[in-house]
Nucleic acid binder design. Structure first.
Lengths: 221, 221
DNA sequence: GTCTATATAATGATAGAC
DNA sequence: GTCTATCATTATATAGAC
């Protein structure tokens, strides 16, 4: 499923070239550049897709489809990555970079990718709770949404800070990221952060309506 | 420090209009649009700043300066927001939206904002540990970098998913965000996530070099 | 199906009048 | 200091030849 398919039809080659271009340089990559990468002319984009937006939509659908397939094939990640379970093969790296860029850009596509990852993580998390590996939450879905948002957000920010994402050695980039965050992740997941449970208790009481709101998160200036 | 300054010089009005435009619609906002918001002509940008890049740099510097001032004035956030201590006044909201967009875009400016927030959080965290509110970490700086990256990343992603950031009622947006994440945050910070400490112990042993790497984060496909 | 050539629109940069 | 007018570049969209 790589890019070195000279036997593909023009449409497929354009779409794959667009996926790589979008992942590597963002969604503003020009049609000329994409066509050049595919080894065809820019006019062919119109013939096959009509507009750039339609090309983009085709890329989104293809990436999501391939990501689904990939995840189904290799589901046995380490528990440390519960909420950012990302494949790391060359093919998987390309997909993840594309997805992270979609999330970073926002819009409908990014939202769809996020919802997909949240749904996956929710399954995984419920299973982990059932097996006694993870403490239960008072609101399982809210916790998963929160954790996925944090995990994916950290990746988005981390990659946004870097110079550029090398599609060819994405595994090394992921390794570097995990090397930096593994200890803090395990500490936090294992030992928490607060020494006492006051804040949580206060908030639970507030939610139960038996007291006034705890010290608000905001101070008007 | 708001935008309703008809008495400002052209340069300052352009810069403030640019900050609002960049925050509201991104850094691709055209010079013509910015000039229109400032109530001046587009040609004036060149006279005062030379290039768009220079205008952007002036905005970055101004935002960081104002953010510093704002934070110095109002440092007493709730502990739940240890690692995303953001002001929420109208002025503060504008600055934060600008900063989040800078981080999201990446590059030197985003990196500088991140480093600033990390340095702030490191001070805060060390103080919290010293006061016995927060458990100590085996690597305080790594933990703070991790937590800030996660907290800011979650905000970036959350805002990227939404339709658009209303600069005028940023406080409401922040309230909505915290309403969704407060319970999961407090649960995680208070109770952790794992039921046992196996993963952490394994990793610590690995770091100490007394054993082989724990089940790796990646499986080659 | 694929290409070349062009239309059209938008942007940043620039020059010069007031 | 400020404005108007224009240039040069680049992007997508489009039309038509092979």
């Amino acid at each position: 499923m790589s890019a070195a398919h000279d036997d593909l039809t023009g449409r497929a080659r354009l779409r794959d070239a667009a996926i790589e271009s979008f992942a590597a340089h963002g969604f503003d990559e020009s049609l000329r550049t994409i066509a050049a990468r595919a080894g065809v002319s820019a006019g062919l984009v119109r013939h096959h897709f009509g507009t750039k937006e339609a090309l983009r939509a085709a890329c989104d659908a293809t990436v999501l489809g391939r990501y689904r397939t990939l995840k189904t094939d290799s589901m046995d990640a380490a528990p440390q990555q519960l909420f950012a379970q990302l494949p790391s093969s060359r093919e998987g790296g390309l997909l993840i970079v594309y997805i992270l860029r979609s999330v970073r850009e926002g819009g409908a596509a990014g939202r769809e990718f996020m919802e997909h990852m949240i749904a996956e993580a929710l399954d995984f998390s419920r299973d982990a709770v059932a097996r006694g590996l993870v403490v239960p939450s008072r609101n399982e879905e809210a916790r998963v949404r929160f954790l996925v948002q944090q995990s994916i957000g950290a990746l988005v920010v981390s990659f946004a800070m870097g110079p550029e994402l090398p599609l060819d050695d994405f595994g090394a980039v992921m390794d570097r990221f995990y090397a930096q965050s593994m200890l803090p992740t395990l500490e936090l997941y294992t030992e928490g952060l607060f020494t006492r449970s006051d804040y949580l208790d206060e908030y639970l009481a507030y939610l139960a309506g038996t007291t006034n709101p705890p010290a608000g998160p905001r101070e008007k200036t």
